[in-house]
Nucleic acid binder design. Structure first.
Lengths: 158, 158
DNA sequence: CTTTTTCTATCACGTACTTATAGAAGTAGT
DNA sequence: ACTACTTCTATAAGTACGTGATAGAAAAAG
């Protein structure tokens, strides 16, 4: 039995009464969506691994410590992540000729393929889900996306 | 250094061209919001632990296997979760007099207090963030919440 | 009264993180 | 150029959190 992670609400029974009845539900909703989307593409990559791979694809070769900062993990953690990516042939370590202390990490073509495959699968599934909503619901989500992104940015850089 | 988990976008550069340019961003947005919200309340409880505790508060004492199913984890995983909750005095094991195989799990008052504290902290922070948005942005998010919840439900029960 | 099923715990394993520390390679200071 | 500091990566040991396989007790079924 391979259970897919579920976030069963931690529901917002208590602390109503204030004017802000919607905020706890936003958190709960995001948690639920997150775990649902994870179920949609469980292609054997952890959050950090997938994110690191995406960074490598976007920005090209990066040194290990840079990656650790970018992903918000410690340097030893990034060493492990890169080691696992390398073991799975999704990334490769390279030497920096100008500074022999550093390790440059690059995405491989297999890594690129995996990313593209994950994106394709995920996009298809989310499209299928959105298609099952009522038109005005899908429109509401689309209309809220910029604001949600702004919120995420605010939350990340306080 | 205690890094707070960040999901840096896995950005949606590729595969545009279809009419569906918004869906990948929904996934990315949810990922970003999720990790942002996690940073907001890092009060030393894992996702599963917090969720289990919330279930126990909502539904009262439950047997261990029931909890495992509800949380979508295996029974051995739930044994561990309960053991940690018990070690931290947030939950307690009880015997079922009518069936001596089963272990009933209950939330303690300390567990209840922790849940309430987490909710209060989280609500305050999210409120503060929403207050920094433009009124029409906050309104867009509020308007999309029901649709997002529907989407989460659709994704969870396919 | 045996057999089967249910329920929990335990074992061995893997992933994903942490802190603390070591070791090699640059960068200064004198 | 030699010592000293700093930077970069790796390693070690520990914790949290999950898995599958299996054991053992208690209940249910034959």
């Amino acid at each position: 039995m391979r259970p897919t992670e579920v976030v069963p609400a931690e529901s917002s029974t208590a602390e109503s009464g204030t004017a802000a009845a919607a905020q706890p539900d936003l958190v709960v909703t995001v948690q639920r969506l997150f775990s649902s989307f994870r179920q949609l593409s469980p292609l054997g990559l952890s959050l950090s691994a997938a994110s690191t791979l995406a960074t490598l694809e976007r920005d090209g070769a990066r040194r290990l410590t840079e990656l650790a900062v970018a992903e918000g993990v410690t340097q030893p953690a990034m060493t492990q992540i890169v080691s696992r990516l390398e073991r799975d042939s999704l990334a490769a370590r390279t030497a920096d000729p100008s500074d022999r202390r550093v390790v440059l990490v690059e995405i491989t073509s297999a890594g690129r393929d995996l990313l593209h495959h994950r994106r394709r699968v995920r996009t298809e599934k989310v499209e299928a889900l959105l298609a099952r909503l009522q038109p005005h619901e899908a429109a509401a989500i689309e209309a809220a996306l910029p604001a949600l992104n702004t919120l995420a940015t605010l939350a990340a850089h306080p």
